[in-house]
Design a protein around this nucleic acid. Structure first.
Length: 451
RNA sequence: GCGGGAUUCGUAUAUCGGCUAAUAUAUCAGUUUUCCAAACUGAGGAGACCAGUUCGACUCUGGUAUCCCGCACCA
């Protein structure tokens, strides 16, 4: 198991075109990152794999792709407008920052009232009384304006999570798919949060991409459905992503940790270089969302059960994971260094399905006869398979193997002088470095089997 | 947001108040019929940004930005 440092991952990510600081030439922008050529492909492969497992292969889960900007009423009903307006104070003595409403012991956003209530309270950190700044709010939702005039009438928010619009589309999806409970709605998309302090590379960013699935169930089955979803999420990490089980653990939220909507919450934590941290959340959101949106919109979001002929508000079991986080986990999980004849070899032992490049085509040397043959094979495979193939002729053959190792390419095909005589090539394996000789006519089949 | 540290070729490091900024590696071109980062030759590539001090600043000072570490935050 690897104990790779974050610096090593950041350096590799930049050096090999996985992740760049956003607007790098201007000095970057905190909380935002750009994905380079290999990173873009890796992220796409992760999304595709998730979509396959959560939508395409599941008959009663349906896909959705909703707008990033929604009617602001949605976020009022969901509790985000209030929740993202946490009143905060700083202790002028020790600089610690606290939630004013927590200090006051009340649930309020009235800043003046809170100032009054906490006036004589001690700072939880240093114990000093009467040193708090005035309460301020830090709205964590990104604001924008819809229409040409920037005023309060036109305020809108970039969604802070993808879940909201799944609830607003609940009835339309149910109707168009004729779905019966239990069923799910899944979505992959960007969300935005004005995090106070983005941290740990791409772990906590201000622009994030979520893969979420909300599963609507009969309240009487909540526990069973919740447990099933937890297992499903865990299995995806182990079986589909191929993560080392030793890098994963469960964390159950205590009542204090839980969000306002959650009846139960379990995180899958991954062993990042900065510790075990949340990778994937499973939440029992109860009927909180459908009830809230039903009330606020005036359109009841009930489900009529045709068997019992009764209506009820379904419970929501939520599965939520960030693309950036699972991307980072994939790099950390697969990064390995080993000694090969006294030299250090860096290899990403990543799930072949996720690898940005499946196959590298390499002429043994940059000779016209070898390069020509290799390019022929490249074209042939490109046309006859769905493999992602890369051609490389610069540098020694050993150097090119190591280049591909570093980006996790599972197979390399090498064209040598025997190829010209016998129409066969070697396939070199990323993990074992072993080679086998294969006829060019069998190449497509041979490579497709492995990927 | 608070406190601490850092910022020099793509990456990792060095040096210096006068810089023509060094080394390794990486990259590119070439030589070598070369299967695990070989060697050799050559090429391109840098002091985050903005001010100040100074005859002169990559070097000193201040601010800003970004990254890392701790704290807080994570609805």
């Amino acid at each position: 198991m690897s104990e790779v440092s974050l610096e090593t991952i950041v350096s590799l990510a930049k050096r090999r075109g996985f992740v760049f600081p956003s607007s790098d030439i201007y000095g970057g922008l905190a909380g935002f990152y750009d994905y380079g050529p290999y990173g873009t492909q890796l992220a796409k492969n992760i999304r595709d794999l998730w979509w396959q497992h959560f939508v395409e292969k599941v008959p009663n889960i349906h896909g959705l792709d909703s707008a990033i900007i929604q009617n602001p009423k949605l976020w009022e009903a969901s509790g985000h407008v209030a929740g993202f307006n946490d009143p905060l104070v700083d202790c002028k003595n020790c600089q610690a920052r606290h939630r004013a409403d927590h200090l006051a012991g009340v649930d309020s956003t009235d800043l003046k009232k809170l100032d009054e209530l906490i006036k004589d309270k001690p700072c939880p950190k240093c114990g000093q009384k009467g040193h708090f700044t005035e309460a301020r709010t830090y709205n964590m939702m990104m604001k924008t304006y819809v229409g040409p005039v920037e005023d309060n009438e036109n305020v809108a928010y970039l969604r802070p999570e993808t879940a909201g619009s799944i609830f607003t589309n609940f009835e339309l999806v149910r109707e168009t798919t004729r779905a019966k409970i239990p069923f799910g709605i899944a979505q992959i998309g960007k969300a935005f949060r004005n995090e106070i302090s983005p941290r740990d590379f791409i772990f906590r960013t201000r622009e994030l991409e979520q893969m979420e699935m909300q599963y609507f169930v009969d309240p009487k089955n909540e526990t069973e459905e919740y447990e099933n979803l937890r297992k499903f999420n865990w299995n995806f990490c182990i079986e589909a992503m191929g993560f080392d089980e030793a890098n994963l653990q469960w964390h159950e939220h205590t009542e204090d940790e839980r969000a306002h909507y959650a009846r139960a919450a379990h995180d899958i934590q991954f062993k990042f270089p900065f510790g075990f941290k949340e990778l994937w959340g499973t939440h029992n959101r109860s009927d909180f969302d459908l009830t809230a949106h039903g009330k606020a919109s005036g359109k009841e979001l009930n489900y009529f059960d045709p068997e019992t002929e009764k209506s009820y508000v379904p419970f929501v079991m939520e599965s939520s994971v960030g693309v950036g986080r699972i991307f980072l986990a994939a790099l950390v999980d697969s990064y390995a260094e080993e000694d090969v004849e006294g030299e250090k070899r860096v290899v990403l032992r990543i799930n072949p399905k996720l690898a940005p490049v499946n196959v590298a085509i390499l002429p043994l040397m940059k000779k016209p006869e070898l390069a020509g043959k290799a390019k022929e094979i490249y074209t042939m495979l490109n046309q006859s398979t769905n493999l992602r193939i890369e051609y490389d002729e610069t540098g020694s053959i050993g150097k090119r193997y190591r280049r591909q190792d570093e980006i996790g390419t599972p197979k390399a095909v090498t064209v040598d002088f025997d190829t010209l005589e016998n129409d066969d090539v070697t396939i070199r394996d990323r993990d074992t470095m072993e080679q086998k000789r294969v006829k060019i006519t069998d190449l497509a089949k041979e490579l497709s089997n492995d990927s």
